[in-house]
Nucleic acid binder design. Structure first.
Lengths: 252, 252
DNA sequence: GAGTGGTCTAGACCACGGA
DNA sequence: CCGTGGTCTAGACCACTCC
């Protein structure tokens, strides 16, 4: 066997092609979660690479959470977990597709409204000002993962109401219009309001992980949204290095 | 020059000792942010290691954000970032005191235990290995804000059991022992187990915001902890600039 | 003991950037 | 041109697990 060089040939480093090969075997279902994959020495002969190259590919995939390695035993495909990176602004559609699952969206609401005083304050508008309001259910196959309740500043997305959110998420739509300069996140655990629980098909008594977010573009508030996730189906995660000399950033 | 083997000698891999050496040069101010550090070849002769070993140490420090490498130019110490606000889970004691309230702690448990298989996997130990276990309730006055359920790798904090956690938190204690190189956070919403709810004086049916954290020092897992917060009394928040070069990171 | 991952070396070639 | 980082190899030794 040899690695797919396609046409671009060795544009990518060899260890990256090894990683791609392994990820492809996983996403195409050849190697399933929990299963033991070929050992280093097997990959070395199968792919005709050196031990250091194979090892680097496997090590990096283990670090990124795709594989799990156990000395003296073998290398295994990790059980998939829906988990996003706290460092990045999460894109729920990408996350689901990255798991090799089918992303689907259902638009529950897409309308123009008038801002009440509380909303106006959040978005930096005056009470009674025109705002766009969307509610979209993001699902992994048939399983709802996120209810996105979003208000938009019309100044930054005048044609928002005529967008098609069945394939492109509101976040992706806005990303193309204006890159965000800044974002604010608040994360909390809440019992969902009844209508939210119903739309997310949640059993009685299950809490939600709620991310409230505001983004700024061109110096003004572009969008304020509230993302409800069933606690059993979603969690936030991040891995990062502490700041070097900071008074924080110890083991803590 | 040679690397600090201290007493534990080559218990740690060589590339980890190279990393520690570099981090120490930075934290002690020998190499300052923005400054160019010795090149690979210089480090190779100075520390008497092979190119691959030096390269791995430098590559991993670049990946973790401590260094920045530019081909044909050199390797530089990174300027401290501001964007990690959300990512530093705040020190609960500092946070309470910053509000002008009275911080208090109650140690519920401080003991040596044997790791079961799940815990051993999380900490990178073998099942049955010795671990330290602490449970501390952090309170704002009389109001419990956080239950900290923490397991420690004894290799990195041999005297953990004789520490006094009534004034100094376990996190602060560990921070002084060994600087963490990396941390992982997972945030989720959970209904608290009965004993946790009781210790936090939570009413029936209130969810918890749960932060699970692992930290790495010297290349091994230093500590794994689970922080339970009553949803009505705590939430995570932060404001930051999206990551520049990421393919993600828009308004979203 | 055989197989596994984990590390390490000595040397090699390459693409790039600056003088 | 030379120094930089980036990759790659062939082979080596080790600690570990499972039989």
């Amino acid at each position: 066997m040899s690695l797919d060089n396609s046409m671009d040939a060795s544009a990518h480093p060899l260890y990256e092609r090894v990683k791609s090969h392994i990820l492809h075997q996983i996403s195409s279902g050849v190697w399933t979660p929990g299963e033991k994959i070929p050992s280093e020495s097997e990959l070395i002969t199968q792919l005709n690479v050196s031990k250091m190259t194979a090892n680097r590919a496997l090590r990096e995939l283990a670090h990124s959470g795709h594989l799990r390695r156990v000395v003296g035993v073998g290398t295994f495909v990790t059980e998939p977990k829906i988990e996003s990176d706290l460092l990045e602004i999460p894109n729920i559609a990408e996350e689901i597709r990255a798991r090799g699952h089918v992303y689907s969206a259902r638009v529950e609401l897409l309308a123009e409204e008038r801002a009440n005083s509380r909303l106006a304050e959040n978005l930096g508008l005056t009470p009674g000002a025109k705002v766009f309001h969307s509610i979209v259910i993001h699902a992994d196959g048939d399983i709802p993962i996120q209810l996105e309740d979003r208000y938009i500043n019309p100044a930054l997305a005048p044609n928002y109401l005529s967008a098609d959110f069945s394939q492109k998420t509101p976040g992706e739509y806005l990303t193309e219009l204006a890159p965000a300069q800044e974002a604010e996140h608040i994360v909390e655990a809440l019992m969902p309001p009844k209508p939210v629980a119903k739309l997310l098909a949640m059993p009685e008594g299950e809490p939600c992980l709620v991310v409230s977010r505001r983004t700024w573009a061109k110096g003004i508030v572009a969008s304020g949204s509230r993302l409800y996730h069933p606690s059993s189906k979603y969690r936030l995660g991040g891995r990062f290095a502490p700041i070097a000399q900071s008074s924080h950033g110890g083991i803590s």
